[in-house]
Design a protein around this nucleic acid. Structure first.
Lengths: 130, 130
DNA sequence: GCTAATCCTTCCAGTGACTGGAAGATCAAG
DNA sequence: CTTGATCTTCCAGTCACTGGAAGGATTAGC
């Protein structure tokens, strides 16, 4: 099947699929006319990538996951470790963003937000309170 | 003052400071030996950048904030709008990450994580449940 | 059979916000 | 005088795509 169909089936842009091939994440066959020819297994792989990227795994982590997926002898602990690390990172990121949110909320609430030029947000950024 | 000192005072890497100059965020003087020569005003500007970047504003947003900061006639509403938009974006990102976290937590919890090869995480990624 | 639209190919460049490193000048200390 | 730190510029790399140009292949309609 052509790349357009593969794109629709995997919910990935064609550009991205070519990019994944370029970095060695899959190796689709080629038809006589030079077009890429995706098998059902390729689509499966692309969907796997789409899902794992969507879960926040980096492309390199996805490569690892794919290789773990392909290795019938791997321990589930290996996968769990990868997922747990990612979970940790996500939790850290959430905490960081929540702290940002708190600060910004405070700033937005303190600023009267009218036509007057004095603004607590800029005061804070410029270090008035520091 | 030299870039090393400016870096220490602003808590920004020297590389970053040069980069900020390259994209026109500041224009430090030059000493006779060709070294950049930072004034206190430059440091103030760098600290402003350090703080606003730390609050999640993009470099372009920081540029806007700096210009608003420099304009004594600007309305505080302009700044407030920028901050409120950013706050919205942060909230969206938090929600997204929390949804990711939920999914990943579930997956990690379901995976027994031992030496056996069967793994619900990979099953999910490969679309077994979809 | 012709034409136009769509789809495919490759290649190159750009994004954001730095970061790393090489090659060479300058400076400060002993 | 030498060593080592610091400065300069410039080029390349990061991550994960994304956009676009130039050109070949296919398909749909007439």
């Amino acid at each position: 099947m052509n790349i357009g169909t593969a794109a629709r089936r995997s919910a990935l842009p064609a550009k991205t699929i070519r990019y994944y091939e370029e970095i060695g994440l899959l190796r689709p066959a080629r038809a006589d006319n030079g077009y890429r020819d995706y098998s059902d297994a390729d689509i499966h792989r692309l969907k796997f990538l789409q899902r794992s990227r969507g879960l926040g795994f980096s492309v390199e982590e996805c490569r690892q996951l794919l290789s773990l997926y392909g290795d019938t002898h791997r321990a589930s602990a290996d996968v769990k470790a990868l997922a747990a690390t990612k979970l940790d990172q996500i939790e850290h990121k959430i905490a960081e963003l929540q702290s940002l949110k708190k600060t910004l909320t405070h700033l937005v609430r303190t600023c009267h937000g009218d036509a007057r030029p004095d603004c607590p947000i800029l005061d804070e950024l410029s270090g008035a309170s520091a």
